[in-house]
């Protein structure tokens, strides 16, 4: 079911090329969508349309199949359901302490104090940062800030969480930790949409991929189908993920049966490698 949909969106920044050029995209309930595109391809602009921050110059955004409104009550209802995590956590954190910052969203939903505290606890626990609750926001590390920013939206319990380049700038462990948290959220029925230029990440984590180039969606569909299309990827300045290449080659060589699932993690690929029988 299409929870959120962009139809023929166009957006031009003054004095620049089209950031969005009759763009189409849909978000299905309960599936993880990666919006894959090169730097500067307009991914952030797209996310800003999907939560109503920017208003399309033409085209429309649909929520549950209904065109969205841009008056305050509609925007409030919209953002209650669709949360947006910005790329730079510093653009989102304003309060002096972590727990206070996370409480901001729930209070804006007009929840009472007890429920707000419950939501704050839930969000901090989901991101494994309960121990940071009383810390000053400016004293956190980059990865910790990122988690607090996500917790701030999670506390509002949106149906869809839009994340702009969630792993950008994170080190290996930070990325792993964040992905396992997002994985838990996905299983808890939050629909995830994230932008990235990292095909490996998209292959590993997304159910569906939309290839984005020059303000348009070139293709959208199940991850393995889209990412095995080399011509499509190179037209968007992207390359095929290594794990997928290995998986497909393993199928070709008969190491992997045709109906076995393709390996999505380095561990799964390694387990394909066996000592030859002599």
């Amino acid at each position: 079911m299409r929870l959120l949909e962009a139809r023929e969106l166009t957006h031009t920044y003054p004095g620049a090329v089209n950031a969005l050029d009759r763009l189409n995209l849909y978000v299905e309930r309960g599936r993880r969508l990666a919006i894959l595109g090169a730097n500067g391809s307009g991914k952030t602009t797209l996310l800003l349309h999907l939560n109503g921050t920017l208003r399309p110059q033409s085209g429309q955004v649909l929520l549950d199949g209904q065109p969205t409104g841009y008056d305050t009550p509609s925007l409030t209802a919209w953002r209650r359901r669709v949360g947006l995590v910005l790329q730079h956590a510093d653009d989102q954190l304003f309060a002096a302490s972590v727990a206070e910052d996370v409480s901001f969203g729930p209070l804006n939903l007009d929840l009472d104090e007890a429920e707000t505290r419950r939501r704050v606890d839930y969000a901090l626990k989901a991101l494994h940062i309960q121990d940071l609750a009383d810390r000053a926001t400016h004293m956190l590390s980059f990865g910790q800030k990122k988690r607090v920013a996500i917790a701030g939206l999670l506390a509002m319990q949106p149906e869809i969480l839009l994340l702009d380049e969630p792993t950008a700038g994170l080190d290996h462990q930070g990325t792993e930790d964040l992905l396992s948290v997002l994985d838990e959220l996905g299983k808890a029925n939050t629909t995830l949409v994230f932008t990235t230029h990292d095909v490996e990440l998209a292959y590993r984590f997304a159910d569906d991929v939309a290839i984005f180039n020059a303000g348009r969606t070139l293709a959208q569909g199940p991850t393995a189908d889209i990412l095995s299309n080399d011509a499509l990827l190179s037209s968007a300045a992207l390359g095929a993920p290594l794990l997928l290449k290995i998986g497909l080659r393993a199928r070709e060589l008969g190491i992997l049966a045709a109906n076995d699932p393709l390996p999505r993690t380095p561990e799964a690929v390694l387990s394909l490698l066996q000592k030859p029988h002599r």
């Binding site: 921050t53 304003f94 969203g105």
Partner: peptide, 24 residues
């Protein structure tokens, strides 16, 4: 530009002109 970005970030979290938080 930082201030503008913060405005977008806060709007995404339902900001309506008041910075209410719950202190422990």
């Amino acid at each position: 530009s930082r201030a503008r970005a913060l405005e977008i970030g806060l709007a995404a979290r339902g900001w309506r002109g008041e910075l209410r938080v719950l202190s422990p």
